[in-house]
Every structure is written in structure tokens, then in C-alpha cells.
Simulated assay, not measured.
Amino acid sequence: MNRWSNESLQLIGLIASLLIGTILYTILLVESDIGFLGLLILPVIVVSSLAFGMRAGLTISVTLLIFLFIYFLSFAPVNDQGEVQFFNWRGIGFTILLLVLSVVSGLVHQLVKRVQQSRLALEERARQLIAVDPETWLDNAERFRIDVISERDRLVRHGGAYSVSFITIHEFSRFEEKYGRTEYEWFLNYFSDELHTATRRTDQKYRIAHDTFAILFPYTSPEAVQVVHDRLRPLLEHYELQSGEYETLTYDDSSYEVTLENAAVMVDAILEIASSSN
């Protein structure tokens, strides 16, 4: 594994170039009579390039150089050879250094921006890969969204139909507060196991929100989905606590059939329902 990435080496090189350029600029500044104006120009150009990019830095650099050209042409003292002080090797050095430092600062801006974009892309990729609810080990809302769209694409290519159902448990946010953490974890394990038992292996199970579960049924009619809901109903209406007591958990269930004719509208509606559950 490389200790230094290409971006790290590039950044080190650019920072070193900035330091060397700043030192050379300071040496020229000490040997000239530009004064406070020269001291102010470099930070303005470097900060502008770092913050807004190379184009902004070069624009400011050229603008300031034009201003300096006019200023020294009009007000600068003339040396013994009859030359304006700005129009000598020091002035040329200032001009070159300002432009070079503006470009280098702009390259630092581009490099940092590229690294940030890569990091955001990796975070998005990781978010998509980590598609499991940690409490139930069912797939999560992101995986649900991906699978619903993938199933729609399959349907468009090959025909058929599929169904999606939702089960939302009322006031589930208070379940842990009412019965404790142990009972809460017990219920989640119990209900996720029962979801697997009541459905086929090819049916995809999800926990898309704290209180909402979803099931994707490939090649399944609404009547077959209702059979699954009927199997789950007594598990919620007569849930047995670890203490042996029974509790009735109220809930809503709904199902939607996606066909070739309604796929575009129905999938959007399903994803909207899932999004509103979060």
C-alpha cells in the first residue's frame, strides 16, 4: 500500500512552490520601494485563488497589475537612468511571481475540490453499500428504493407484475419507552423472523423507517399479498411479551400492484410513501 497518494504528493509540491514563491516575493519586496501596497497584494491574490479558483485569482492579478502599471507610470519616482522603478527587473519579477503564485494557488483549489468530490462520491457509495438496518438485519430504505426501481426495469423488459406492501406499527416510537430496551430488541428479532417465515425466500423484506416495514413480492398478485398480511395479523394483534402477557399492537397495512400499464405512476407513488415514512 502506497504511503503517499498522488494527491498528497501534488499538494506537497504545490505548497512547497507557494512557500518558495512567497520567499522570493518577500525578498523582492524588501529590496524595492513598493511598501504596504506590495505587502497587501500577495495575500489578496493567493486567498482569492484558494477560495474561488484559478480564474478568479488570475482576474484579480491582472487587474492589480494593470492598476500598478498605471500607478507607477503616473506617480512612481524615476531612477538615475531615467527609468520608472516598476519597469525594471524587480517589476518584471513581481509580475511573474504574482501570476505564478496565482496559478499555483488555483491548482491547490482545484486539487482540494477534486479530493472533496471524491470523498463525497465514496461516502455516497458506502451509504449505498451499507444497506442493512442494524437492529433487524433487514434491508433498509435505500436498498428498498434501489430494488423497487430495479424490479420496475425488469418488468418493463420482460413483463409480468409485482407487488409492494407496507406495515406501519402505530406509536412504535414509544414501544421501547413503555416496555424497555430488552423487550424492544426481542420484538424486532421476533417480527423480522416472522416476516421471513410468512414470505417466500424470493420476497424481499425491509425496514424502511423506525415503525414501518415493507415487502417486495416479485410475480405476486394482491390476493397472494393479502394472504401474507393475514398470517402476520395475529402476531401483532396478540403479541406475547416476555412476561407472558399479551399486548395488542395496532397497525396499518397496505399493498400496491405494479404492472406494465401503471409502472411509471405506481413506482413513484410507492417511493413517495416510503420517503414520507422516514
Rank of each mutant, 00 (worst) to 15 (best):
S5M: 02
S5F: 12
N6M: 09
N6A: 15
N6R: 13
S8G: 04
S8H: 11
L9W: 10
I12R: 13
L14V: 01
L14Y: 13
L14N: 09
I15Y: 09
A16F: 09
A16Y: 09
A16Q: 12
A16L: 14
S17W: 05
L18V: 02
L19Y: 12
I20F: 15
I20T: 15
T22A: 12
T22D: 10
T22R: 07
I23D: 06
I23A: 06
L24V: 13
L24Y: 13
Y25C: 05
Y25R: 15
Y25K: 15
T26W: 10
I27H: 08
L29T: 05
L29Y: 14
L29R: 09
V30W: 03
E31S: 10
E31H: 11
E31G: 08
E31Q: 15
E31I: 11
S32H: 12
D33L: 14
I34M: 10
I34L: 10
G35A: 01
G35Y: 00
F36D: 03
L37Y: 01
L37R: 05
L37N: 03
L39Q: 00
L39G: 11
L40N: 10
L40G: 11
I41Q: 13
I41K: 04
L42K: 13
L42T: 10
V44K: 00
V44C: 02
I45G: 13
I45M: 10
I45S: 04
I45P: 10
I45E: 08
I45D: 08
I45K: 04
I45W: 10
V46E: 04
V46D: 07
V46K: 02
V47Y: 14
V47R: 14
V47G: 03
S48A: 11
S48L: 13
S48M: 13
S48R: 08
L50D: 15
A51H: 03
A51I: 02
F52N: 13
G53M: 10
G53W: 04
G53I: 03
G53L: 00
A56T: 12
G57M: 05
T59C: 04
I60R: 01
I60S: 05
S61N: 11
S61C: 06
